[in-house]
């Protein structure tokens, strides 16, 4: 019998996340011999990004892509890759994911979900009007941030951290309410950041992750061969996703350059300051974490050696 799934995701067609999903769907259809068809509704057009987890969990859609960081208030593990300095390179992000995977598998299983793919966001950096020569250049700047962790980081770097909804960013820039952004090259091009600032200083610092979740009940209803096809295509999407993320990072940096922006690697003292801020946050994270969560962090630290 043929099965049709509906998939919800929150990013536009041009985003590498969506391109990765498209490829995954193609592979699932081929590998399952056309037994499973997936109708992707990207760009919040069916379910808004923040609501995708619940939509998959409650069976409104069978499959969807979530941003793990959105659920930081539900469990400490969702926050680990949000802490500055925990995983600053793609390589570390891969190892962190491997360490987190068994924990997440268990957590999602309890919630009737199954993660088939993890994809990391490209690293982040500061968008500023003036070039950053050192930590002193950040002092007192009005920085738009988007989470508790980035707020703490901004404040410890001596900046005035301001939480604003994404949609208020352009207006806030043009009125001088904010002077700088801290985000990825992807988000920078999304808001066409070159209209407001001229310099992107890459710090790496963190690689948040997206995950593709499947409703476990819907998954169980597939025959064994199709289940295998889904899992394999999901695994392939994880591998491809990391490559696409790296490529997208370079591509987006080129887009920034083509609009006259200067790209620079961060000065050492800024990186050091971020690391110090991050270490403090890790200690706080560990203090609040359960034994299982702590074990994940320790396994990750071991895998780095």
């Amino acid at each position: 019998a043929q099965t049709a799934w509906t998939m919800a995701s929150g990013y536009p067609e041009s985003s590498f996340f969506t391109q990765n999903i498209r490829q995954m769907i193609k592979e699932i259809e081929e590998k399952s011999g056309g037994k499973l068809k997936i109708d992707l509704r990207s760009n919040d057009s069916l379910i808004k990004l923040d609501a995708v987890k619940r939509a998959v969990q409650s069976g409104q859609v069978q499959i969807g892509e979530i941003r793990l960081g959105v659920y930081g208030n539900e469990g400490a593990m969702y926050n680990l890759d949000n802490i500055p300095g925990v995983a600053t390179t793609f390589d570390q992000a891969t190892k962190l994911t491997d360490a987190q995977r068994p924990f997440f598998d268990e957590l999602f299983k309890k919630n009737g979900l199954r993660a088939i793919t993890y994809v990391a966001w490209p690293g982040q950096g500061f968008y500023t009007k003036q070039p950053l020569k050192g930590l002193a250049d950040l002092k007192g700047q009005k920085l738009r941030i988007y989470s508790k962790q980035t707020q703490i980081m901004g404040e410890r770097l001596g900046m005035e951290a301001l939480i604003l909804p994404f949609a208020e960013v352009p207006q806030a820039f043009s009125t001088g309410m904010i002077q700088s952004l801290w985000t990825s090259a992807q988000t920078g091009t999304d808001v066409q950041v070159w209209d407001y600032v001229k310099h992107f200083t890459y710090t790496g610092t963190m690689h948040n992750k997206n995950a593709i979740l499947v409703n476990e009940r819907a998954f169980r209803q597939l025959d064994a061969a199709t289940q295998k096809a889904v899992l394999e295509a999901g695994e392939a999407a994880t591998k491809r996703g990391w490559e696409l993320a790296k490529k997208a990072s370079e591509e987006r940096e080129n887009v920034l350059k083509s609009h006259g922006m200067t790209i620079a690697q961060s000065p050492k003292d800024i990186l050091d300051a971020i690391e110090v801020a991050g270490k403090g946050m890790v200690q706080e994270w560990l203090a609040a974490a359960t034994a299982e969560e702590k074990a994940v962090y320790e396994n990750y630290q071991k895998s780095l050696k």
């Binding site: 536009p12 820039f173 808001v191 066409q192």
Partner: peptide, 18 residues
């Protein structure tokens, strides 16, 4: 608000749309 939604979707500068 509508320009912001269009700008992000079509990858057009929101400032320029404004």
């Amino acid at each position: 608000i509508i320009m912001i939604v269009y700008g992000v979707t079509a990858e057009v500068s929101i400032a320029r749309l404004f």
